[in-house]
């Protein structure tokens, strides 16, 4: 068993739209270790969203290979993909993507519903995770009654509840002010400390600088992939 949680080799992806074919990913090679915290940067159109969708098994790729926890992810049916997503991956989105008519606890508990955990048990587990996020007293509030930061913390709790190997965060701080952004990043770092790999797609340097490694994409290829030294520095400072 290798130490990489995500291993991508020569990944290609094109979108065919009528007679036009748009080659979005042009051979991506990437290896993310267990427990690593990595950011993927790039301007819009660089292919970072497409890459994230493929990593999240929300989309197929055309050529190359993708191993998630040493499992070769190939073209698979939706049922299988859904099961892998549920088991291995937690999603955190820019727009939170909470279900508006379910309260905080029910939103957090939802992944367990798809694991066929009983209502009582999954609500109990959800309360534990809300506790960890400091949102216990907000458990019975609807998303519309919560602030952006609270919503994102609920989304993170939801991503964590199924004990995933990787968290994929798509611009997790994009809709938040800088103060709240920092709080959310602190939580993500804490999560990372527990051994869960985190991949953050962002275009903010402030955010990227708080990760161990920064991968820059440009026009569908990796432009740079280097260890973020300021992260170490910061860690030292914290310690």
């Amino acid at each position: 068993m290798s130490n990489s949680i995500i291993r991508v080799e020569a990944l290609h992806k094109s979108y065919v739209n009528g007679s036009n074919s748009l080659h979005v990913l042009k051979g991506i090679d990437m290896d993310i270790q267990r427990g690593e915290m990595v950011s993927i940067m790039g301007s819009s159109g660089s292919g970072k969203s497409t890459l994230l969708n493929i990593l999240g098994i929300l989309d197929n790729y055309d050529a190359g290979s993708y191993h998630l926890d040493d499992i070769h992810i190939t073209k698979m049916n939706e049922t299988k993909a859904a099961q892998y997503r549920n088991k291995y991956i937690g999603f955190v989105f820019q727009s939170f993507n909470l279900i508006s008519f379910k309260n905080a606890m029910e939103n957090v508990a939802l992944p367990l519903y798809y694991q066929k955990v009983s209502r009582k048990k999954r609500n109990n587990v959800a309360m534990e995770y809300l506790e960890r996020m400091g949102l216990r007293e907000w458990a019975h509030h609807l998303p519309s009654e919560l602030s952006g930061g609270q919503k994102q913390r609920i989304a993170i709790a939801r991503a964590l509840i199924s004990k995933p190997k990787v968290i994929l965060a798509d611009e997790p701080t994009g809709a938040l002010d800088s103060q709240t952004s920092m709080e959310v990043m602190e939580i993500l770092k804490e999560v990372n400390q527990t051994g869960i790999a985190i991949i953050i797609v962002t275009h903010e340097n402030d955010i990227a600088n708080q990760t161990q490694r920064i991968i820059r994409l440009r026009d569908g290829v990796i432009e740079s992939n280097h260890i973020n030294h300021s992260f170490k520095l910061e860690s030292v400072e914290v310690n």
Partner: peptide
């Protein structure tokens, strides 16, 4: 909502 459900593990059948 269905998109969210699918992302967090809802199978097409569900």
């Amino acid at each position: 909502e269905i998109g969210i459900r699918k992302a967090i593990g809802a199978t097409p059948w569900s």
